[in-house]
Write a protein that binds this DNA or RNA. Structure first.
Length: 424
RNA sequence: GGAGGGAUGGCUGAGUGGUCGAAAGCACUGGUCUUGAAAACCAGCGGUCCGAGAGGGCCCCAGGGUUCGAAUCCCUGUCCCUCCGCCA
């Protein structure tokens, strides 16, 4: 959520900045509601003040043994007025809240302008796509050769957009997870956490998936309420600090977690239907940092490097792109995507996304730190990034490490995790 | 599933329907003392919203209710703890 004070005093500017994200901020409606709110709030608080003073008076009179009947009569009408004012005020505040909670984060000044992914800006590239002396296959074809990647059985068990791995390929998938976790914990100082894969609505509101993007989630009825399958570990891990006031000494907090992710893909029917690029269920190793505000931009660069380290270990060619305003996510102020080279598609495809959410999620979550300078609780900054999407990494390894006879060479970095297996 | 107990400031923990936003301790900040530090002593110290300010409102798990007045009484829910049963 944006800072209501800031929005209140600069509604036009907010509208202008949000336009770069393709969002129309309803300035007039907001200002109108705000003015009403102010008037009602003052009125209500005056009534409350009046009631408090009178009630105290009654208490004193009673203690002094005086007759309180006349005082009670005076107060009779006050209660009704107060109830009415309170009801009006809370209805109005709810409207304002509903409006603000649906407004995305403001892009950082450094974010390139643009409407969609076509306008993203390449920041750097790493590695060179391999020159094949045969026609490279895509991962679906490679998987079919010895049946280790099986979409049909997964479709029978569940439905479309699910996959099943077998044998050495399943092991390589697991090896990737171990390698990623070990790298982030042992080399980059992250604290590994194991978290729930189902979360409540408060957590999703905290990170920004609710209320706007409910249709992207799997929702599970549970008693009178609902739980949701996590779309990313960002949700449970970032919510570790929801409603907390963190000691400055504990910052930065750096968490890494491996979880499955579940997405309904409601808005993407027909996109990436072939292969395991876009699945309802996939594994991801996620990095999350909670930092003091002045450090978040450095942390974004650092975290991007932590994700890149995995691709470099696997010797997979990739590029880093800065997302343009129109392609930025709801909660992000700035995002770098890592795109890995896929010989099967002859394209770079997203394999990681690293974002600085600034104080946007922290405000929704009330995640604060105590600033030693001011001694006051202030909003922290939150960041998250994939390190990496495991399914997509697996298919990138398959396509980049394929041999002419349709086998897959095991990358050096994975061999310690594969019990010496060199070919899948 | 059954039976009990609990939830209060950064943390621990008192709290009688009416000067209770709340004792005390810890932590923290400042001071005295000290060559320096520790200890001791003194003082300060919750969060949030409105307001230019003066000042005021709200917050004792959450939501309702009773009352002129609720941390305190009543109802519902959530979470935690103990015991029994079941269970990977």
């Amino acid at each position: 959520m944006l800072d209501p004070k800031y929005v209140r005093s600069n509604p036009e500017e907010v509208a202008k900045l949000l336009k770069t994200k393709g969002f129309d901020f309803p300035v007039e409606q907001f200002v109108e509601l705000e003015n009403q709110r102010k008037e009602l709030q003052v009125q209500t608080e005056n009534l409350q003040s009046e009631r408090n003073t009178r009630s105290k008076g009654i208490g004193k009179a009673k203690a002094a043994g005086e007759d309180i009947q006349p005082l009670l009569a005076e107060v009779a009408e006050l209660g009704k007025q107060l109830d009415e004012a309170k009801a009006n005020l809370s209805a109005l505040q709810e409207k304002l809240e509903d409006l603000l909670v649906g407004v995305p984060n403001i892009p950082d000044a450094s974010v390139p302008e643009g409407e969609d992914e076509e306008d993203n800006v390449e920041v750097r590239t790493w590695g060179t796509p391999r020159a094949f002396d045969f026609e490279p296959k895509d991962h679906v074809e490679l998987g079919e050769l010895d049946g280790q990647l099986d979409f049909e059985t997964a479709a029978k068990i569940t439905g479309s957009r699910f996959s099943m791995l077998k044998g050495k390929l399943a092991r390589m998938h697991r090896a990737l997870i171990q390698m990623m976790l070990d790298t982030q914990t042992e080399e980059h100082g992250y604290n590994e956490v194991y978290v729930p894969y189902m979360v409540n609505a408060d957590s999703l509101r905290g990170t920004g998936q609710l209320p706007k993007f409910e249709e992207d989630l799997f929702k599970l009825p549970f008693g009178e309420r609902h739980y949701y399958l996590i779309p990313t570990a960002e949700v449970p891990v970032t919510n570790i600090v929801r409603d907390e006031i963190i000691d400055a000494a504990q910052l930065p907090m750096k968490f890494v977690s491996h979880t499955p992710c579940f997405r309904s893909e409601a808005g993407s029917t027909g996109r990436d239907t072939r292969g395991m690029i876009r699945q309802h269920q996939f594994e991801k190793v996620e990095m999350v940092q909670i930092v003091e505000p002045s450090k978040s931009w450095d942390a974004l660069e650092e975290m991007t490097g932590h994700a890149e380290a995995i691709l470099q270990k696997l010797n997979l060619p990739y590029r880093v792109v800065a997302l343009c305003g129109g392609d930025l996510g709801f909660s992000a102020a700035k995002t770098y995507d890592l795109e890995v080279w896929l010989p099967g598609q002859q394209k770079y495809r997203e394999i990681s996304s690293v974002s600085n959410m600034t104080d946007f999620q922290a405000r929704r979550m009330q995640a604060r730190w105590r600033n030693p300078e001011t001694k006051k609780p202030e909003l922290a900054h939150t960041l998250n990034g994939s390190g990496l999407a495991v399914g997509r990494t697996l298919l990138a390894v398959m396509e980049n490490y394929q041999t002419a006879d349709g086998k897959i060479e095991v990358p050096e970095a994975l061999r310690p995790y594969m019990g010496g297996v060199t070919e899948v």
